[in-house]
């Protein structure tokens, strides 16, 4: 119990620190939202428009930084996130909730796929250590994971999108379509998710393989595995029920963390594929010095990660008796 309480206190302190950073860090950037808007519409706007936009965005309000900070804290707890400046006058919450499904759909699903595939490959590799499978799959994916996301993305656009013309090169679905609940629309969305999803999977799978394989190798030398073999259990049962179940524990923690980070999106992939998710929105918020949007996105990401960490901690307590005995 004390363990869980301690984690809760840690959660609150981290959240508070993160929120404070969220507030002050963006304000250290040079310029202000009105200037960012001028930069975005450079040449289309008369210089005088700067004054108009500063009025619209409330840039030169006399409110001091400290009182702004406290009203920000208050608003965050009551769920008032304000108006986005990049997407003015849309409410921040609306911007976030438009982007969130795309990111959860794309990054969430691919994270799960990469985790399952990576764990399986790691397990099999460790079981058949030194075999053909083990000497090809892990090294290939580990090398691939060293490539930057966006580079793989651009190459796959070039090959599958432009040269071969098999798949669409970007965006969430074909621009002329209307959002309907139909198979053809769903198919179109899936088709557009293939390339960005593929990019994320093949670049993130290597990490899972590596940790899983290493854990597995250690576990396989344990006495109870030898006993299982001696008993004549089938290899698949040993891999899954005996070795895999124990080896996966550290990987589960990592998986929980990366599920938390799903909310932050995959900025580079979303940018390269013009995918309208959270990562892309975050990029726009930073470029536009859109304080309300940035704060809210960072807050969401922080909370998502902290909540997942809290859950993982709790789960670990349940799964692993050793963590309980600390107190």
């Amino acid at each position: 119990m004390r363990y869980v309480l301690r984690r809760l206190v840690f959660f609150v302190v981290t959240l508070f620190a993160a929120m404070t950073t969220n507030f002050f860090l963006p304000r250290l950037m040079p310029g202000n939202p009105a200037l960012a808007m001028m930069a975005r519409f450079h040449g289309r706007l008369n210089g005088q428009a700067l004054v108009a936009m500063e009025v619209a965005f409330g840039v030169n309000t006399k409110q001091g930084l400290i009182s702004q900070y406290f009203s920000y804290l208050g608003n965050s707890f009551t769920g008032h996130f304000g108006t986005s400046l990049t997407f003015f006058p849309t409410a921040v919450s609306q911007v976030v909730f438009t982007a969130l499904p795309w990111t959860i759909g794309l990054v969430g699903v691919t994270t799960v796929i990469a985790f399952i595939l990576g764990t399986l490959i790691g397990m099999i590799g460790a079981w058949r250590r030194g075999g053909a499978f083990d000497s090809v799959m892990p090294p290939v994916f580990i090398i691939l994971s060293a490539f930057p996301y966006f580079w793989i993305g651009m190459v796959s656009i070039l090959v599958f999108g432009i040269t071969l013309g098999w798949l669409p090169i970007g965006s969430d679905y074909s621009y002329g379509l209307r959002e309907t609940l139909s198979w053809s629309f769903a198919g179109n969305v899936l088709e557009h998710a293939v390339l960005p999803g593929f990019t994320i999977v093949i670049t993130s799978i290597g990490g899972w393989i590596l940790t899983m394989r290493n854990n597995m190798v250690t576990t396989l030398s344990e006495d109870y595995i030898r006993l299982a073999r001696a008993k004549g259990l089938s290899p698949s049962r040993i891999i899954l029920d005996y070795a895999g179940r124990n080896a996966i524990l550290p990987n589960l923690t990592g998986f929980g963390m990366s599920l938390g980070f799903v909310v932050s999106g995959a900025i580079l992939v979303e940018y390269v594929f013009s995918y309208p998710g959270v990562g892309y929105t975050l990029l726009q918020a930073v470029l536009g010095e859109d304080y309300p949007l940035m704060q809210t996105l960072f807050l969401f990401i922080t909370i998502a990660v902290l909540v997942v960490v809290l859950i993982v901690d709790a789960v670990t307590v349940v799964l692993d008796p050793r963590t309980r005995s600390v107190s």
Partner: peptide
Amino acid sequence: LSGTDYGAKLYDGNFQLAYGYEA
């Protein structure tokens, strides 16, 4: 520079030379 940094310097006159155009 980034667009905003450039703009802030340009409008405030904190530059020696600046490359740009007016509407």
